[in-house]
Simulated assay, not measured.
Amino acid sequence: MIADSTGRDAGRRARPARATRRAGAWTHDGDIDPLTRMCRFGAEALMKTVDRYRLTFTHPGPDARMVTDEVVVERTSAHGPGGHPVYSDPTGILRAEISPAGEVRMLASGAYQSPINPAAEPLS
């Protein structure tokens, strides 16, 4: 037997990791660290998600003063490119992917948009 640096048989193929649901909780089968490599749905099951955020946009106004706009967005059933929930305003024009850490990624919902990233505040 030839062992690798982890002490396992180097000739044996590693079993692929997969997430399974047992008794309402997500568990992992395989040789992965569940804290750093969770599947998207398993990570959401462990984190408390916020249903509404207030997004605050700050931009220069016509007379060089800063103007602040606030929009309340609600969670949708969609997930963004980063795997986090997508939030939308009632019109559906403003869409943002917001991570549990509060990082905001604005998503274009139509042509000719160049959205800026706002500050996000969770609402209860």
Rank of each mutant, 00 (worst) to 15 (best):
A3Q: 14
D4P: 03
D4A: 08
T6I: 02
R8N: 07
D9P: 03
A10P: 03
A10M: 06
G11A: 12
G11I: 01
R12I: 09
R13C: 00
R15W: 09
R15S: 10
A17R: 05
R18S: 14
T20I: 14
A25Q: 12
W26N: 07
W26V: 10
W26C: 10
W26K: 06
T27H: 12
H28A: 13
H28V: 15
G30Q: 11
G30C: 11
P34E: 05
L35H: 08
T36W: 01
R37A: 00
M38G: 09
M38A: 09
M38H: 06
M38N: 07
R40L: 10
G42P: 02
A43G: 11
A43M: 12
E44Q: 14
E44N: 12
A45R: 05
A45C: 02
A45D: 07
A45F: 02
L46M: 11
L46Y: 10
L46D: 10
M47I: 12
K48M: 11
K48V: 11
V50E: 06
R52A: 15
Y53F: 13
Y53D: 05
R54Y: 06
L55S: 04
L55D: 03
F57Y: 04
P60D: 10
P60V: 08
G61M: 01
P62E: 06
P62Y: 00
A64P: 02
A64L: 10
V67E: 14
T68L: 01
T68M: 00
D69R: 00
V71N: 05
V72C: 03
V73S: 09
V73L: 07
E74G: 11
R75G: 03
R75A: 12
R75I: 07
T76M: 04
S77C: 05
S77K: 14
A78K: 15
A78M: 15
H79D: 10
G80Y: 04
G82Y: 09
G82Q: 14
G83W: 05
H84S: 15
H84N: 15
P85N: 14
Y87F: 15
S88D: 07
S88Y: 04
D89Y: 07
P90M: 03
G92V: 09
G92S: 14
R95L: 13
A96S: 08
A96P: 04
I98M: 06
G102P: 07
E103Y: 01
E103T: 08
E103G: 01
M106G: 04
M106E: 02
A108M: 12
A108S: 14
S109W: 03
A111H: 05
P115N: 07
I116W: 01
N117A: 11
N117T: 10
N117G: 09
P118K: 04
P118A: 05
A119R: 14
A120Q: 06
E121A: 13
E121K: 13
E121P: 03
P122I: 03
L123V: 12
S124Q: 11
